[in-house]
Design a protein around this nucleic acid. Structure first.
Lengths: 155, 155
DNA sequence: CTATGTACGATTCGACAAGTCGTATATTAA
DNA sequence: TTAATATACGACTTGTCGAATCGTACATAG
């Protein structure tokens, strides 16, 4: 159920670019890697993918680096996850873009549950533009533990 | 973001056992495998794990098989996923049981988003007892496509 | 012309999902 | 008591994928 490191790293880099967006000056991979604690050569691959996607552009040569290619309102976290991790759905039989047929569907009971999870998750992820997320407050440590431990469920 | 086949298969088997629960007669792995379209030898492994967990019990010998060891109200889908897939959280830094520190936390913006997803997902999963899920209606094909295609987002 | 960048294919490395095999052990019906 | 039908369980296979590294080519500002 976890997102990949690649997605994680991509998002870190993107948010750094968002914060740099107003200045218009490119920021090098070396900087991006150091600031976000990401292996440089690995980030290189990731930035390349994002360039192909049209989310960032690069400036070559000395003083070069990367710049956001779209405004932060036009890129959503959902798009990023779908590109790097493939699917948002918890199970293939409730996926729209990567639907996998399952011959148990007619009688399947737990499918509805996963469908609800999928709907809520995609709703949040697709509404989460870089701009909107960047304007939010960071999470406080207590918040991570707040809800679940009461029910005893956790994770 | 997807659950594993193991979890999928485990749930299929569990719901079959739920439906058999009133009769009290064990059902063999062969039957379970055939009814749910799961490789028999693989299901064997899975049932064994669930036995250790205390969710099912086995009766050896001829006429033997598996029976639900608890009432369907006492087992949740959340428990099953956590056991086979490890975590429900989309990212380590918002997990209670498998928290992973990340030195970006103070400034991290997208953490809140994943926290919200986690809270909603665990809420649904932990409220989903086998009994409750089994009483629900199967999903209609249209429902899978209902929400997302309107927004153009999908998956 | 060199220091500092990105571009990009090839490759490694380990972990894990998914599944198979062989054989031991238990129980019951004939 | 034995054949048939079960589970028990460790060992093994196989393929895929995440995560990352390497080498080298190319671009450009100063």
């Amino acid at each position: 159920m976890k997102i990949s490191k690649k997605t994680d790293y991509a998002l870190r880099a993107l948010f750094t670019l968002v914060q740099q967006y107003s200045q218009g000056r490119p920021i090098s991979i070396g900087q991006l890697a150091r600031r976000n604690d990401v292996p440089k050569r690995f980030l290189e691959r990731i930035m390349l993918e994002m360039k192909v996607k049209g989310w960032v552009t690069s400036v070559m040569g000395k003083q070069g680096g990367y710049v956001l290619a779209k405004s932060p309102e036009e890129i959503t976290v959902g798009q990023v996850i779908r590109h790097f991790d493939g699917v948002l759905s918890p199970i293939g039989c409730v996926s729209v873009h990567q639907y996998e047929r399952c011959n148990q569907e007619v009688a399947c009971r737990f499918r509805r549950l996963f469908l609800e999870v999928r709907n809520h998750t995609t709703g949040l992820m697709d509404a989460a533009t870089l701009a909107r997320v960047n304007d939010g407050k960071p999470v406080q440590p207590e918040e991570v533990y707040s809800m679940d431990l009461i029910g005893g469920a956790g994770i």
